[in-house]
């Protein structure tokens, strides 16, 4: 069964013209799919369409076996597919790391105690316990990236959507991120400009060109 199935997606920005013109994509369990394409090709737009943050002009979005159209259809999709934003600062808005990680579980109706337990368990697993009470906006770029990943993992998603996660990471933090991603059971959709990072994480690759997705080798 496909986790995601996008068929013939068209999308145009007002004043900037079409970005997607007939893009299709199928994501199966166990897939670690990389998506490449030049700046502005519409990669981030594609991820946002998968989560219903952007409504495409045309085309169908099927997620977890159901057609998704209305805003309400996507509430469940957003819980089961976690998006890690390109800019970590877009995601972190709570005073401390623990608050931010607890935000998702609280939205899912967990009590504050349960959320706190999830925070501790997750930070221990990712070896980030030392950041638990750190102030989010004072974290380094690498720390912010790992914390945003933790925030998304706290919701226990079945799919991870990663938008240029290795951006601006030093070698050490990138290796750490790669290690963490290897231990995760989730299917992954990965947008990355970094060929060696893609080769380490992905097992499939699609190239976004002129608004369409075409098969491409994982390491080009």
């Amino acid at each position: 069964m496909n986790l995601f199935h996008l068929e013939n997606i068209h999308h145009a920005w007002p004043r900037r013209g079409p970005v997607l013109s007939g893009a299709s994509l199928a994501l199966k369990a166990g897939d670690r799919l990389a998506i490449t394409g030049h700046n502005g090709a519409g990669k981030s737009t594609l991820l946002k369409i998968m989560l219903g943050l952007i409504t495409p002009d045309q085309g169908s979005v099927e997620a977890f076996g159901q057609k998704r159209q209305a805003e309400a259809d996507f509430h469940d999709v957003r819980r089961r597919a976690g998006l890690v934003f390109q800019d970590a600062d877009d995601q972190l808005f709570c005073p401390t790391v623990a608050d931010d990680i607890a935000f998702g579980p609280l939205n899912l109706g967990k009590s504050r105690d349960e959320a706190a337990a999830i925070v501790d368990q997750l930070l221990t697993r990712l070896d980030l316990m030392y950041l638990r009470d750190a102030i989010t906006h004072r974290l380094s770029g690498g720390e912010k990236r790992l914390v945003t990943l933790a925030c998304v993992l706290a919701m226990e998603p079945e799919v991870l959507l990663l938008d240029e996660p290795s951006n601006a990471l030093d070698e050490e933090n990138e290796a750490r991120l790669t290690d963490i991603l290897h231990t995760l059971p989730q299917s992954i959709v990965l947008i990355s400009h970094d060929a060696s990072f893609r080769a380490k994480v992905a097992n499939r690759c699609l190239h976004l060109k002129e608004g369409q997705l075409v098969d491409a080798p994982v390491s080009a």
Binding site: L51, R79, F93
Partner: peptide, 26 residues
């Protein structure tokens, strides 16, 4: 963008402490 990211993590505003706290953080 922050509101989108909140939405992605299942945030739906309501009349409760969690909502007020979250908007305060925002």
């Amino acid at each position: 963008r922050l509101r989108q990211a909140m939405k992605c993590r299942g945030f739906r505003p309501g009349t409760n402490g969690h909502t007020y706290r979250s908007f305060g953080y925002l």
